[in-house]
Every structure is written in structure tokens, then in C-alpha cells.
Amino acid sequence: MTTQETIKQTFNFSVNGQPQTVHSYPMKRLLDVIREDLTLTGTKEGCGEGECGACTVFMDGLLILSCMTPICQVQGLDITTIEGLADSTGLHPIQDAFYEEGGAQCGICTPGMIMAAAHYLEHPDSAENMGEALAGNQCRCTGYTRIFASVEKAFEAVGKPLPE
């Protein structure tokens, strides 16, 4: 077991503004560090192979998949998860819109979907349109129409035009 221990390394980074130090296997997924070491269980695993988008978080503002990111590459970076999306006063406009418009059904894809939608709201030029912006986040319940409606509503709420 000693060789196993020796490959562990110490990583410093922040999650939702809080500094964190984790001693871990370096190839442990950021997803598992968030969920197990930090018990922030809002970030979900749907596939483990970078397809479903349920584990989407921000890393230094970039939209990334936490199941595709080993903790050794998070050293010194800032992570934002669903738990840190809104400020303490309430819901992020995307969260509010998903709540109002029925964008969440079973809810398992919702945290990842909301992270991708929030990124799109912030960077509407990052994709050709909403369909592309959310194509990495799969939902099996809604058929996406309520999700489109939610995102449209959030753009309206913050006074941004939704790209065609």
C-alpha cells in the first residue's frame, strides 16, 4: 500500500470562491473530488465519458466537463459548480427561468444543463445558436422544448437578445 500512498499529491484550488486543499490520486476526476472530498453533490455523473454533460462546471470561467478533468490539472484554478452559481441572494436568472418554465423534470441533467445555459447567457457568441450551445447536455425528460423556453426567458430577464 505504500507505493499507492506515494503517488498521491496535494492540490490547491478553489471551489465556489472557497480555497480547497486535497490530497489525492492525481488522476482522480475533478467530478469525484467535488462530490466525494468536498461533498458537493449537485454536480452529477451521467455517463463518465464526456457525452451527457451532467457533470458540467466552470474552470477559470471555461465551460468544462468534470468527468474529463483529472484533479492534477486543476492546480491553482477556480472551479464553479451549481452550488456556487447564484450569489447568496437567491437564484441565478437561468435557475429562476428553469424553475418557472418547467425546464427541470427529473432534475438529474439540470445542474449541468444550467451551467451550460448560464455560460451561454454570459457568452452568446460562443455557439452558433442555443441548439449548439446546449448540445453537450442531454436531457431525456423534456424533449428540450421547455429548456429552450427557459433559456429564452432568462435572456429576456437579463435584457439580452437571444441570438437566432
Binding site: 462530490r35 458537493l40 453533490t41 449537485g42 454536480t43 452529477k44 455523473e45 459548480t81 451549481i82 452550488e83 447564484a86 437564484l91 435557475q95 429562476d96 428553469f98 424553475y99 418557472e100 418547467g102 425546464g103 427541470a104 432534475g107 438529474i108 439540470t110 445542474p111 444550467i114
Partner: peptide
């Protein structure tokens, strides 16, 4: 009427507890 899901806030904030949580 479009009553909101009572569990909706927990779902949009990541607080809802699924089995692996």
C-alpha cells in the same frame, strides 16, 4: 394553473438528493 414543482428549487440548485448523493 402552472403551479411550480414543489421540488423544483432543489432541482435547479443541485440540492436534490439522488441515490449517489
Amino acid at each position: 394553473h402552472n403551479i411550480k414543482r414543489p421540488e423544483g428549487i432543489d432541482k435547479v440548485t443541485g440540492k436534490a438528493i439522488y441515490i449517489d448523493d
